[in-house]
């Protein structure tokens, strides 16, 4: 299971990184989202991988999973979700303001230089 988990996490992170380095806003946003998924999976595994373990102490249970990474992932998911929503809106705003979805659109700069 460890090998599968590590492969999936690594593949997600690599795809996310590749997309985040693209030149248009939409792939960048998708890339950052994939990256945050990979990070969430990675955080999940930091307490060690266990199946069927209880997170909260119960009578008669001897098999426990580390509850802290689960709580951390929950926080990270909430924050990541808010950030994705924000960056989507922002990307649309950039598209509207500039008339192009290039991350590094230089047309605006040139126009300003000529004016001055």
């Amino acid at each position: 299971m460890e090998a599968l988990f590590a492969t999936v996490t690594g593949f997600l992170a690599a795809s996310g990184l590749y997309l985040a380095l693209r030149g248009r806003t939409f792939p960048v946003v998708v890339g950052l989202t994939l990256l945050s998924y990979a990070v969430n999976l990675f955080l999940f595994s930091t307490g060690g991988l266990t199946t069927d373990g209880a997170a909260v102490i119960q009578d008669g249970k001897t098999h426990y999973a580390d509850p802290l990474p689960q709580a951390l992932v929950l926080t990270a998911i909430v924050i990541g979700f808010a950030m994705t929503a924000f960056s989507v809106i922002l990307a649309m705003r950039v598209r509207g303001d500039q008339g192009s979805d290039q991350v590094n659109d230089q047309r605006g700069d040139d126009a300003r230089e000529e004016k001055s």
């Binding site: 990979a38 969430n40 991350v103």
Partner: peptide, 29 residues
């Protein structure tokens, strides 16, 4: 115009930074 573009760069960079922060935290934990 200038602010939204500078803002997008800033946001994208800091989101990547936050992802790395979480990875580092995971490793430390």
């Amino acid at each position: 115009k200038d602010r939204t573009q500078a803002g997008f760069h800033y946001v994208a960079l800091n989101l990547a930074g936050s992802a790395m922060f979480l990875i580092a935290l995971g490793v430390l934990y």
